[in-house]
């Protein structure tokens, strides 16, 4: 007995040390995979891109990787009318796609929140566009928005003189790209709203209807204010997503050099970056665009953050 006690007393400091180590170190170890992956796939590319952006590197010009040009690429970018055009396109498409998308998602979520027959199937159904691949969707939308034998032009036949060439104008191509984006993301946002709606206590609605509030008043005065944090979240996520829009305009494009339309009518920043980097082989310039986009994103996210805090504190 004494011998046993003795041994356990000896082990005590080792065990407690292990215990203390567990408490202090293991949380870091748990989250470390994320940070390791982030370092490999996030931080390193970011830093490497920054380095490339100060060179005139083009794989087609031997030795150009080592030619340092300082901030010349960024200076060129500031006066590059194609970059300005891409910026305007990105913001325009972002606005045209995000605003109706979130309003629509809110409406759909509200409808799905009713006690409907086959509720689960309907709720899963709105997520179907989200899980289909953008490439497959683009195939169908390219058919719909085709100039010569497109579905939309066929439907519009009685109302327009000649078929609309959707890619020819900025407004029409923005619309086409936005519809693709909306198709993809509306259901996803609707489900986020729906999840938030279900946390709103039902008594609120009950007492409101006793007080004689209509469905619309209930939606406007109970649902929307309760969803405020969720709405802010979706706005931020959608804004960042809109800034990085690529797949839809890329797949809608019929030029061979990723021009985003014959005159860059719907060339977004990332598509322009892709064109400069891959089609034209301007690694240095492409990297500068990437970093500029990163900074723009950070600024917009910061503005969003400040606005959010204002809204919170005014509550």
């Amino acid at each position: 007995m004494t011998a046993g006690l003795q041994r356990s007393r000896d082990r005590q400091p080792w065990r407690s040390r292990l215990h203390r180590l567990d408490l202090t170190v293991s949380p870091y170890l748990y989250i470390s995979p994320f940070f390791l992956l982030f370092a490999v796939f996030g931080l390193f590319p970011l830093a490497y891109t920054a380095i490339i952006s100060t060179t005139a590197w083009s794989p087609r010009r031997p030795g150009s990787a080592d030619v340092s040009v300082g901030l010349e690429n960024y200076r060129t970018l500031l006066s590059d009318e194609n970059f300005h055009n891409a910026l305007i396109n990105t913001l325009g498409i972002g606005l045209v796609s995000t605003v109706p998308q979130l309003l629509l998602a809110l409406g759909i979520a509200h409808l799905l929140n009713y006690r409907l027959r086959g509720r689960l199937a309907l709720r899963m159904g709105v997520l179907v566009p989200y899980v289909t691949s953008v490439a497959a969707v683009a195939l169908i939308f390219n058919q719909m928005f085709a100039r010569d034998f497109g579905l939309l032009n066929w439907l519009l036949q009685p109302f327009v003189d000649s078929p609309i060439d959707w890619r020819a104008d900025s407004w029409s191509s923005w619309l086409a790209v936005s519809v693709m984006v909306m198709w993809h993301w509306t259901g996803y946002n609707a489900l986020i709203y729906l999840a938030a709606m279900q946390t709103i206590p039902y008594d609120l609605y009950e007492s409101a209807s006793i007080d004689g509030a209509s469905r619309w008043q209930q939606f406007w005065h109970i649902t929307v204010p309760s969803l405020r944090p969720t709405i802010i979240f979706t706005v931020i996520v959608s804004t960042i997503g809109a800034l990085q829009l690529f797949a839809e305009p890329f797949l809608f494009d019929t030029t061979r050099n990723n021009n985003g339309g014959s005159e860059r009518q719907f060339q977004t920043i990332v598509l322009y970056l892709y064109q400069q980097f891959w089609t034209n082989g301007r690694y240095g310039y492409g990297a500068a665009i990437a970093w500029t986009l990163f900074l723009i994103t950070v600024i917009i996210a910061a503005v969003n953050f400040v606005l959010t805090r204002r809204i919170r504190s005014s509550e």
Binding site: R256, N257, E263
Partner: peptide, 27 residues
């Protein structure tokens, strides 16, 4: 030349913009 293919594509896109109604001089 090194960018012959790229330049050909630029011209092709520009002529397509003329087909879509852009002024040829601007294109």
């Amino acid at each position: 030349g090194p960018e012959s293919g790229v330049i050909g594509n630029i011209f092709a896109a520009a002529l397509n913009s003329v087909e879509q109604g852009t002024d040829p001089n601007e294109a």
